[in-house]
Amino acid sequence: MSALLPLFPLHTVLVPGGTLVLRVFETRYLDMVRECGRNGSGFGVCLILAGQEAGLPATPASVGTEARIEDFGSTEAGLLTLRVRGGRRFRVLHTEVRPNGLIEADVHWFDADPDDELRPEHALLGSVLQQVVEKVAEKVGGEYDQVPPSRFDEAAWVGWRLAELLPLSHPQRQMLLQDEDPHARLDRLLAMMP
């Protein structure tokens, strides 16, 4: 199944379940946010392969994540701020640039990750994530304050949270985003461990 999705190319990678805070000031993205608000829809976040976040349309990676707006506000300078959460992953099939400079993509949605449990060879990653989450909860609290212990046994959730919270490079996160199998994603994360 494919769909049309406006894209917001960034110098970062949004993973499913992850959050980003964005400052929105360009007309094309303000228009996009209005459309998303009217339609109750999201937009796509893709890593920039070439170009910049502002100005001429950038070249986005071919795999990205749907961003759903959870909250909004404004800075002291009056810029719109958004807190978004990553949803479904997609592959870009084709892009067009609207007259206002907004990139719109025909996308194919990835299937949702299966509800598999961690395999024994990935148990270390569940423990690493528990330690990381405890440190994050001490610093910022919020959603990581009360994570049910059962989540640390879920292969997909563990992989996405490590992809979000570990100090990885953007190309490393992008590789994880492109993995279609949560166990392959965890294998890749194990290989990235020092």
Rank of each mutant, 00 (worst) to 15 (best):
32 M>E: 07
176 L>V: 13
127 S>H: 13
28 R>D: 03
95 T>D: 07
64 G>D: 08
15 V>A: 00
82 L>I: 02
39 N>V: 04
25 F>Q: 10
111 D>H: 04
135 K>C: 05
162 L>E: 07
119 R>G: 08
140 V>K: 08
6 P>G: 05
76 E>M: 13
89 R>I: 11
18 G>T: 05
78 G>M: 14
14 L>G: 00
63 V>L: 06
161 R>H: 14
93 L>S: 10
4 L>Y: 06
25 F>M: 07
188 R>P: 03
112 A>T: 11
162 L>A: 08
15 V>M: 13
17 G>W: 12
12 T>Y: 08
147 V>K: 09
191 A>C: 01
73 G>C: 15
63 V>F: 07
193 M>E: 04
44 G>E: 11
51 G>D: 04
125 L>Y: 05
144 Y>E: 06
142 G>Y: 04
46 C>T: 13
22 L>M: 07
157 W>H: 02
14 L>P: 02
122 H>T: 12
86 G>P: 05
32 M>C: 11
192 M>F: 14
59 T>V: 14
37 G>E: 14
80 L>H: 09
20 L>P: 07
42 G>A: 06
50 A>P: 00
14 L>Y: 02
80 L>E: 09
190 L>T: 08
157 W>Y: 03
159 G>F: 02
121 E>I: 01
30 L>R: 09
24 V>E: 02
54 A>F: 07
122 H>E: 11
66 E>R: 13
141 G>A: 12
142 G>R: 03
109 W>L: 06
111 D>C: 03
12 T>L: 13
17 G>Y: 10
189 L>R: 09
63 V>W: 00
8 F>T: 05
76 E>C: 01
60 P>N: 11
72 F>G: 00
118 L>S: 04
37 G>M: 10
13 V>T: 11
175 M>R: 15
136 V>L: 12
43 F>T: 05
44 G>P: 05
22 L>K: 02
30 L>D: 02
165 L>S: 14
56 L>R: 15
159 G>W: 00
143 E>F: 08
181 D>G: 07
63 V>S: 03
12 T>H: 06
170 H>N: 14
137 A>N: 07
78 G>C: 10
87 G>H: 04
98 R>K: 04
63 V>P: 06
101 G>T: 00
191 A>S: 15
3 A>S: 15
144 Y>T: 05
185 R>L: 09
118 L>N: 03
29 Y>E: 00
91 R>C: 04
22 L>R: 11
194 P>F: 13
115 D>S: 12
126 G>M: 13
56 L>V: 09
106 D>E: 15
138 E>C: 02
1 M>Q: 09
109 W>I: 11
165 L>Q: 12
39 N>Q: 15
90 F>Q: 01
192 M>K: 05
162 L>N: 11
117 E>M: 08
150 S>P: 00
154 E>W: 12
108 H>A: 14
36 C>N: 06
